[in-house]
Amino acid sequence: MDRGLNMVNEATSRRNREGASSTGRPGLLTLINSYFVRHAQTLFYSLGQLLRAPFSMLMTAAVIGIALALPAGMHQLLQNAQLLSGKLDDATQISLFLKKAVTEQQARELTHKLGNMPEIGRVRLITREQALEEFKQNAGFGDALRALDENPLPHVIVINPALQHTDAAAGRKLLERLQGMIQVDAAQLDVEWIKRLYAILEIIKRGVWILAALLGMAVLLVVGNTIRLAIQNRRDEIVVIKLIGGTDAFIRRPFLYTGFWYGLFGALIAFTLVNIALYLLSDPVRQLGELYHNPVSLTRMNLETSAYLLGAGILLGLGGSWLAVGRHLRDIEPR
């Protein structure tokens, strides 16, 4: 506690002699108050400094924005893919191909009977005529099919298992029962490809995290380098402030806030970029969904993801400037 206390005491008593009203030496409460005021002032001062050169500020912020937009955008697409695969999951379907001999009337009766089974949620009959029509329209087999004498397609009953029977084991059991029915030629349960899809999504997810980590480091370096240049540009100022008693914290503060602003602006740019990209993709995705008779739409970034993005940007901005300030401020000493 010997940090110039003697001097301070003497100075204070000298000032007291001058009269209390003219001291203005900050009291503890004033100091705490002015601490926050000064932080706010520095925050906006550093913003003002950045806005003096808006173009170069935007360039740096854009680099940060693109680096953040890549993982954020991929994360968003991945979320959409997972949402979509979740829909596929409820749509675990069993297709029953009925024997040729089964008439349409019998098929309808069977459909009705299956619909009443507790394991089964929804059933839908596709008669051979309907199937043929659909084939002719969609698959481009029209000419080939016309060349045939008779309709080669069987009646098909499409079954969605009831929700509690959607897992693989229950699905398989149901499948065996259905296969045993005399009217049924073949039954097919397709879950393998969904499992594969999940595995692929898991790999992509890991990849997105790795990408995010790498690009996060890139943001740290970009901010760090920008702050390093700012420190060099303001070398004279730092020397003067050190000469007249500015603490390291006082000198550090504007640079940290500069990093904060870079991070914030970068994150806002990333947010905008991701949403523009999602908007551009939304139409083609909807068309793709229509082809699968499955209405899908891309979800925009929700509040939580946006908050994470902003938080990540700000933290990386602060972190980058912290690294630069820690390394370079100590080197600058008045001589």
């Binding site: 010997d2 940090r3 110039g4 003697n6 001097m7 301070v8 003497e10 100075a11 050190k242 000469l243 007249i244 008693g245 500015g246 603490t247 390291d248 006082f250």
Partner: peptide, 23 residues
């Protein structure tokens, strides 16, 4: 300086010391 031995002032305390000097 003012009864204070400067060799006892640590690096972190230098700013507070300098506030009592005009240069």
């Amino acid at each position: 300086v003012n009864g204070q031995n400067l060799s006892r002032i640590k690096r972190r305390q230098i700013p507070y010391f300098r506030r009592n000097i005009g240069i």
